[in-house]
Amino acid sequence: MNKRELMKIKMKKKLKVKGNHVIFSLVFLVLGYIIAFSYHVTKSEGENTAITGKQWDRDLELRNQLVDLEKKNLTLQKELHEKQEQVREIENELSQEAQVYFNLAEDAEKLRMYLGKIDVKGQGVEVTLSDGAYNPDEENINNYIVHEQHVFKVINELYISGASAIAINGQRLTHNSYILCNGPVIEIDGYQHPAPFVISAIGDAEVLSSALNLTGGVKDSLVNENIQFTLEEKAEVIMEPLLQAS
C-alpha cells in the first residue's frame, strides 16, 4: 500500500471521528435544551402553584369575611326589625293617648257647653210669648198676662222634644234654674225680665216646631188662655254663657 492510500485511509478515519463528534454534540445540545426546558417548565409550574395557593388563601379569607359580614348584617336586620316594632308600639300608644286626650277635650267641651261656660250655637226655634190684647170687659187682668206656668209649658215641651239648650230673653237656663212670676215680670235665677218673653231653643228645628204645633198641644193651650204665641224656626241660634247671680 502506497503513501497516498494510507493518507486517504487516515483522512477517512479523521472525517469519521469528526462526524461522530458532530452527532454527539448535536445530541448533547438537544438533550441540554430538553433538560433546560423541563427545568424551566417545572420551575414555572411550581411558581404558579405557589401563586394559586396564595390566591386560594386570600379567597378563603375574603369568603370568611363575607360570611361574617352577612351574619352581622342579619343580626343588624333583626335589631332593626325589633326597633321598628318598638317604634310602632310607641306610635300606637301615642295615637291611643292622643285619641284619649282628644276624647277628654271633647268631653270637657261638652261639659262646658252643658254647664253654660261657653257660647253654643245650632239650629233651633224661637218662641215669643206676649201678653194678650187688653179687653175692658175682662175684670181680672191676670187672665191675659203671661205667667211662669205659661213659660214652663213651652220649656218642658222643648226639653221633651230634644232641645239641648234653652234661653229666655237671652239668659241661659241650667238644670236647676228657677222661674218666678213677680207682677208684670218674671224672675229667672235672680234676674228679672219683662214681657214679651222670647224663648230660644237649640235642637232639631223641625221636631221642636212640630211638637209645639200639635193639635191640642202647648200652642193651642196658650192661645186659649189669651196668650199671644209666635213660633219661628231658626237656621242658627246662638246662646251666650250663663250669667252668675250676685
Rank of each mutant, 00 (worst) to 15 (best):
N2C: 08
E5H: 09
K8D: 12
L15S: 07
K16V: 04
K18R: 09
G19F: 04
G19R: 11
V27P: 02
A36D: 04
A36W: 06
Y39W: 05
Y39R: 06
S44Q: 10
E45H: 03
G46W: 02
A50M: 03
A50C: 00
T52N: 06
Q55G: 00
W56T: 10
L66T: 14
V67Q: 10
N73E: 02
L74Y: 02
E82N: 11
V87S: 05
V87G: 02
E89S: 09
E91F: 01
N92H: 04
L94F: 03
L94V: 13
Q96N: 08
A98I: 05
V100P: 00
Y101P: 00
A105P: 00
A105E: 06
E106T: 10
D107Q: 10
K110Y: 02
L111H: 03
L111T: 08
M113Y: 00
Y114F: 01
I118M: 01
D119H: 03
E126Q: 15
D131F: 09
A133N: 07
Y134Q: 06
E138K: 11
N143L: 14
H147G: 14
Q149N: 15
Q149D: 15
F152E: 14
N156Q: 13
L158Q: 08
L158C: 07
I160M: 07
I160C: 02
S164E: 13
I168L: 14
I168Q: 10
L173R: 11
T174C: 04
N176H: 13
L180F: 15
C181D: 12
C181F: 04
N182K: 14
G183M: 06
P184G: 01
F197K: 06
S200D: 15
E206V: 11
L208P: 06
S210T: 15
G216Y: 08
K219N: 04
D220K: 01
E232T: 14
E236Y: 01
I238W: 01
M239I: 10
P241D: 02
L242P: 00
L242S: 10
A245C: 04
S246K: 13
